[in-house]
């Protein structure tokens, strides 16, 4: 690990100010992604600003009946919150489908959103990777791409976004709240927050250096049957090949859907979570323009079948 200095921030403004003023500084939250990458020298900050003690660890109700989740709320606490379990079960389900109990006890809401690629070449500094080393090339295009994205990709990067939580947040139309170091707050949808790779896959979000995520806001609960179905190589403790977050209306005709494992950000059918129709219609819209590789073309039928299974379960649950 490269050497760095460390400080514990006392206020939000101070934390954002320190990072904004130092191009080599970074925030550290749970540390479960950042330290992993620092050990491999894929991330090399020279100064760490610890944001664990800024009071961003609360979940509060909003005036319009939704929830405001602090950026530092641990994944375990978010999954276990009684309001989330009752009104946003898709989010609890997605959280507990990710990582392990130990990791979820440390991982935070903001850190989870900002976790970086799990592409094997991103993790291998001996291989070209545009995301790790801009302009060096993409080893995955001609290499191992089984786990990678099939849609929303570019000739410069085909990495998928690895978060499970973010897929549920997309289905729920959550917004990310950001405090700018230059003053001002903004609230972004996930589609606004995450950038597609294009020619600059190393720039993953619209955040400016020093911008601090303060939390995530959920709109008021939507009625329906909540599901998170994750297909992976092991029964537990593995990233998604394909995942479906769904809140299906009681009559089964419409619902809210978001998809993981297939794109550089949580994905939807045609840019809207809300969709109607059967699995083949919705999957076809979600996969419109897909450019799979020979190794990951299986994700196309897998997505449709996973969605079909979810809709079948939804029909059974509603029929009970």
């Amino acid at each position: 690990m490269k050497s760095f200095t460390y400080e514990r921030a006392e206020t939000l403004e101070q934390a954002a100010g320190i990072v904004a003023a130092n191009a080599e500084a970074k925030f550290i939250a749970g540390g479960t992604n950042l330290l992993d990458l620092m050990k491999l020298e894929i991330e090399t900050p020279r100064h760490l600003v610890d944001i664990n003690h800024l009071g961003l660890d609360r979940i509060e109700e909003t005036e319009d009946g939704g929830l405001k989740i602090g950026a530092l709320v641990r994944n375990t606490d978010l999954a276990a919150d009684v309001r989330v379990r009752r009104d946003y079960a898709v989010l609890t389900r997605a959280l507990v489908a990710g990582a392990s109990g130990q990791l979820r006890n440390k991982a935070t809401t903001a850190g989870n959103l900002l976790q970086r690629s799990r592409c094997p070449y991103f993790y291998d500094p001996s291989k070209p990777c545009n995301k790790r080393d801009p302009g060096s090339g993409c080893s995955a295009l001609e290499g191992h791409s089984r786990t990678l994205a099939v849609v929303g990709t570019s000739d410069h990067c085909i990495s998928q976004h690895p978060s499970d939580m973010a897929v549920a947040l997309r289905a729920l139309d959550a917004r990310v709240n950001v405090m700018s170091a230059r003053g001002g707050e903004k609230s972004l949808t996930l589609d606004e927050f995450y950038r597609l790779p294009g020619e600059t896959p190393h720039i993953e979000t619209v955040l400016q250096h020093g911008d601090l995520i303060t939390g995530v806001t959920l709109p008021k609960p939507v009625k329906g049957v909540h599901f998170y179905r994750k297909v992976r190589d092991r029964a537990s403790y593995a990233f998604a090949l394909v995942s479906v977050a769904a809140v299906v209306d009681e009559d089964g005709r419409e619902g809210r859907y978001a998809f993981g494992g297939i794109a550089p950000r949580p994905w939807t059918a045609g840019g809207e979570a809300r969709a109607e129709g059967g699995a083949s219609v919705i999957a076809a819209r979600a996969l419109d323009g897909a450019r799979p590789t020979g190794e990951n073309v299986f994700k196309l039928p897998l997505l449709e079948r996973t969605l079909k299974a979810v809709l079948k379960d939804a029909a059974q649950t509603s029929g009970k």
Binding site: R8, G30, G31, L35, T76, L103, N105, K106
Partner: peptide, 20 residues
């Protein structure tokens, strides 16, 4: 795996200085 403030975590993915 160890317990910090009563919760299990992976001690390899956290810095000692973060646990003052």
């Amino acid at each position: 795996t160890v317990h910090v403030n009563g919760r299990r975590i992976n001690s390899c993915l956290t810095l000692a200085v973060m646990h003052e």
